[in-house]
Design a protein around this nucleic acid. Structure first.
Lengths: 230, 230
DNA sequence: ACCGAAACGAGAGCACCGCTCTTGCATATT
DNA sequence: AATATGCAAGAGCGGTGCTCTCGTTTCGGT
C-alpha cells in the first residue's frame, strides 16, 4: 500500500472510504439487494455518475463490502480465540463470537453466506479472506491434536478422494487425517448453517431458546470433530 | 376449491395459471430477485398493469412460487421414501432426492432457503407445506425407533427447554425424546445447509466429489440421529 | 512557467423496474 | 334492457444501474 502523494490521490482515497462507509451504513438498513448507488451518492451529496469514478459498478462496490465482511467475521473468530483456554472453551468462544457478529450484522452475513447475487461472480481476492473464520476452527482442533486431546468418535468414513487435495494439506505443519478434515468441513458448514436458519426464521416455532440451541449445536460439532465434551 | 362456473371465471383461472408458469419459467432463468412482473407480462403479451388483476403485488406472485417450491421439495422427499427399505437406505434416498431437486431447481431452492427477500414476510400458508420435507426425515427415524433400530450415539445433551414444546410433540403418536428431536432438527438443518454450500460455491476448492461428500454427510447425520450405519 | 494529458463532477439521457390511476369495453346480474 | 362488475390497456410517477458528454480542475513533463 502506497501512501497517497498528491492532493488528488489523498482526496480520492478519502472519498473512496466515504463511499464505502455510506454504503456499509445503507447496507445495514436495506440489505445488499436494496443497496442503491444513487442513494449512496445522494447521502454524499454528489452526482450518481461521480460514484463510477471510484467503483466501476455496483458489483464492485458490493465486492468491497464482501471482503470487509469476510475480514470482520474472520477477525471476530480470531479475537475470540484465547489459545490458553482448553479446546472446548475455545471452540465455544469462537462459535459464539461468530454468531454474535452475524446477529449484529445480518445483512453482511447474508452478503457472504446468503443467496449469491445473480450475475455476480466472486473475485479471486475473496478466497483468502474467506478462509480466516474456518481456519480459526481448524487451529483449535490442530492444537488439541498436538496435545493429544483429540479423540474423534466413530462414525461413517469419508472417501479421501471426495476432498480436494489442497484441503487435506490444511494448516501446514499439522497433518490432519482425511476424516478429521471432512468433519472440520462439516463443522464449518454447520456454524454457517445454523446461523442462517436462525437469521432466516427457519427456527421460529422450532426452537424456544436460540442461544441455548446454538450452544448445543456447537458442542455437538465439537464432539464430532473429536473435542472432548464434559 | 370450486370449479369455475362462468366463462369469465374459467378464463381467470387459466390466465392465473399461465402467469404462474411463465413466472416459474423466468425464475429458472433470472432467479427470484430478477423476476420482473413486466417481463412476465411481456411474455404473455399483455399489459403489465393487467397482472395486478391476478396478483396484488410482486410479493404475492413470489409467495405462490414459494408454496409451489415447498410442495415440490416435500413431494420429492416423500416420493423417494420407500417404507419397505431399511432405514439407512430410506434416509439416503430421501437426502439424495432432495439434493437432486435442489440442483435441478436452484432458484426455487434459493427462494425458500436462501436470503429472505427484504420486506417480504412469509404468509402463514407456508408453514404447513414447509414441514413436508423435514417430516419425511422424521418418519424414517420414527419407524426405526418403532422397530428398535434406533440407537442414538452418545453426545452432548440438549436442554429440552431450548426446543418449542410443539416441536417435542412432533409426529403425533410417536414419542420422541428431546434429544432425538434436537438431532432431527440438526439433520434437517444439515440437509439444507450442505446443499446451500454446494449451490453457493462454498465447496469449490474444498470438496472434489460433491455427490460423494454429500453421501458422507447424509450418513454422518443418520448416525447422529441413531440410524445404524454399515 | 507553461501546456497537454489525465482525472473529475455534474447533468442529461436510456432502458428498465414496481405500482397506481383512469378510461373504455366486455361480461354478468337483476 | 339497464345496471353493476370484471377486465385490459395506457399513461404516468418515482425509482434503479449505467453511459455519454461537457466544462473544470489537477498533475506531470518539458
Amino acid at each position: 500500500m502506497n501512501a497517497p502523494r498528491t492532493a488528488r490521490e489523498r482526496a480520492r482515497a478519502e472519498l473512496t472510504k466515504e463511499i464505502l462507509t455510506a454504503a456499509r451504513r445503507q447496507l445495514g438498513e436495506v440489505g445488499g439487494i436494496g443497496l442503491s448507488l444513487r442513494s449512496v451518492s445522494r447521502e454524499l451529496g454528489m452526482a450518481s455518475s461521480a460514484i463510477y469514478r471510484y467503483f466501476a459498478s455496483r458489483d464492485e462496490l458490493l465486492t468491497a463490502l464482501i471482503v470487509e465482511a469476510y475480514n470482520e467475521i474472520g477477525a471476530a473468530a480470531e479475537n475470540a480465540d484465547l489459545p490458553v483456554a482448553d479446546p472446548i472453551e475455545r471452540w465455544l468462544a469462537v462459535w459464539r463470537a461468530v454468531r454474535e457478529w452475524s446477529l449484529a450484522n445480518r445483512h453482511e452475513f447474508a452478503l457472504i453466506f446468503g443467496t449469491p447475487i445473480p450475475g455476480y461472480i466472486a473475485p479471486h481476492i475473496t478466497v483468502t479472506v474467506a478462509g480466516r473464520m474456518p481456519l480459526a476452527l481448524a487451529r483449535i482442533t490442530s492444537d488439541a491434536k498436538r496435545s493429544g486431546a483429540l479423540i474423534p468418535p466413530p462414525g461413517p468414513t469419508c472417501d479421501p478422494a471426495a476432498i480436494e487435495p489442497d484441503m487435506l494439506r490444511l494448516l501446514e505443519g499439522e497433518e490432519f487425517t482425511p476424516g478429521e478434515v471432512a468433519r472440520l468441513i462439516l463443522a464449518w458448514n454447520r456454524l454457517v448453517g445454523i446461523i442462517s436458519y436462525e437469521l432466516h426464521g427457519h427456527l421460529t416455532n422450532v426452537t424456544a431458546d436460540d442461544a441455548a440451541f446454538f450452544d448445543y449445536t456447537a458442542r455437538t460439532e465439537a464432539a464430532l470433530c473429536g473435542l472432548i465434551f464434559d
